[in-house]
């Protein structure tokens, strides 16, 4: 019975039809090139750059063939870091790096920047990084410091619930020494006192580019 099911699965796998190959292939190519996708709903900060042949081809797939909005001209840094990130993630994490964020008592500044790396300007999902709701699904834990004493247990439990390799990145100047909150009675001065950390992304708050390059460095 098991053999039969296995056969069926294999058959299905082999015979899976490729729907609209012309629609799928450019998307894959763009991802490999590190081009910015999913950025259709915005208008540029600077004057719109002339469309590359690839972008033009992409637009032509839409039925109306009318371009309603222009793509954001990509920032060089984002594309460079992003390309490096996606190659690493492809190799080490089978194309997808899942991140769980824990606010361990921060002032909310770092959260704003982490939300910002998901916006269409940075669109970190195009490089294979996405934020998950459960630590059980996460390869990496982002901790926004400082760690308050009241959050210590929750942080520890989140860490314990993660599967290996349990990568941990601490974010903010407060992660290393407590930052402006140093020596308060209610916080722990370093994240290291609770869980081992791989890398600290400094800044108050670090910019989205800092966070992206920090993740890149932490991946080794």
């Amino acid at each position: 019975m098991w053999q039969l099911t296995k056969n069926i699965i294999q058959q299905l796998g082999r015979k899976r039809p490729r729907l609209f190959p012309q629609l799928i292939s450019p998307a894959r190519e763009t991802r490999a090139n590190g081009d910015q996708r999913g950025a259709l709903h915005c208008s540029p900060l600077d004057s719109p750059a002339p469309l590359s042949p690839l972008q033009a081809a992409e637009i032509s797939y839409f039925k109306s063939k009318i371009q309603t909005e222009t793509l954001i001209p990509s920032h060089d840094n984002i594309q460079q870091i992003g390309a490096a990130l996606s190659t690493k993630i492809k190799k080490q994490f089978n194309r997808a790096l899942s991140i769980r964020l824990v606010d361990a008592g921060s002032c909310n500044g770092c959260e704003l920047e982490i939300q910002a790396i998901n916006n269409p300007y940075y669109n970190i999902e195009q490089f294979g990084i996405h934020f998950v709701a459960s630590p059980r699904h996460a390869d990496m834990l982002l901790v926004t410091a400082p760690v308050s004493k009241n959050m210590r247990d929750a942080l520890l439990k989140t860490y314990e619930a993660m599967p290996f390799p349990k990568l941990v990145i601490a974010i903010g100047n407060c992660a290393q020494c407590g930052g402006v909150f140093k020596d308060s009675y209610a916080i722990l001065n370093t994240v290291n006192e609770v869980i081992p950390i791989n890398y600290i992304i400094k800044g108050c708050p670090p910019t989205p580019i800092d966070i992206m390059s920090g993740i890149l460095i932490a991946l080794g």
Binding site: G105, S106, C107, P146, S148, N150, A154, S184, A186, I187
Partner: peptide, 11 residues
């Protein structure tokens, strides 16, 4: 609440 209490009054 109280999870992000950082003792700023005392600081």
């Amino acid at each position: 609440f109280g999870y992000t209490h950082k003792g700023i009054h005392q600081l």
